[in-house]
Simulated assay, not measured.
Amino acid sequence: MIKFIRWLLFPFSILYAAVVLLRNWAYDNQLYNSTSFHFPVIVIGNLSVGGTGKSPMTEYVLRLIKPRLNVAVLSRGYGRKTKGFRYVDVHDSAKLVGDEPLQIKRKFPDVMVTVCEDRVHGIQRIQDQIDAVLLDDAYQHRKLRPSFSILLLDYESLQHPVIPLPTGNFRELLLGCKRADVIVITKCPKKISAQMRFSIESRLRKYTLAPIFYTKIAYKRLQTTDGLLLHEAQLQDTCAVVVTGIAKPQPLLSHLEPQLKKIIHLSFADHHHFSRGDLHKITQTLQQIDDPQKVIITTEKDMQRLPSSFIAQHPVYFIPIEQAFLFDQASTFENIVIRACASK
Rank of each mutant, 00 (worst) to 15 (best):
A210T: 03
A210Y: 05
A210I: 00
P211Q: 00
P211E: 01
I212H: 02
Y214K: 04
T215W: 00
T215M: 03
T215Q: 03
K216L: 05
K216P: 03
K216D: 01
K216N: 02
Y219G: 04
Y219V: 01
Y219W: 12
K220M: 02
R221E: 15
R221N: 15
R221C: 09
L222M: 14
L222A: 13
L222H: 07
L222K: 04
L222V: 10
Q223H: 10
Q223S: 14
Q223A: 10
T225H: 06
D226E: 13
D226T: 12
D226F: 06
G227M: 02
G227Y: 04
G227P: 01
G227V: 03
L228K: 10
L228Y: 09
L228N: 11
L228P: 01
L228T: 07
L228F: 11
L229T: 12
L230C: 13
L230N: 13
H231L: 13
E232R: 14
E232W: 08
A233L: 14
A233D: 14
Q234Y: 02
Q234T: 10
Q234E: 09
L235V: 02
L235A: 08
L235F: 06
L235I: 03
L235T: 03
Q236M: 00
D237F: 11
C239A: 15
A240R: 06
A240I: 10
V241S: 04
V241T: 09
V241Q: 05
V243R: 05
T244S: 10
T244W: 01
T244P: 04
T244C: 08
T244I: 07
G245T: 05
G245P: 01
G245M: 06
K248E: 13
K248T: 13
P249D: 11
Q250G: 07
P251G: 07
P251K: 05
P251W: 07
P251M: 09
P251L: 07
L252Q: 09
L252K: 05
L252W: 04
L253C: 11
S254P: 00
S254A: 12
S254N: 12
H255C: 07
H255R: 02
H255Q: 10
L256G: 05
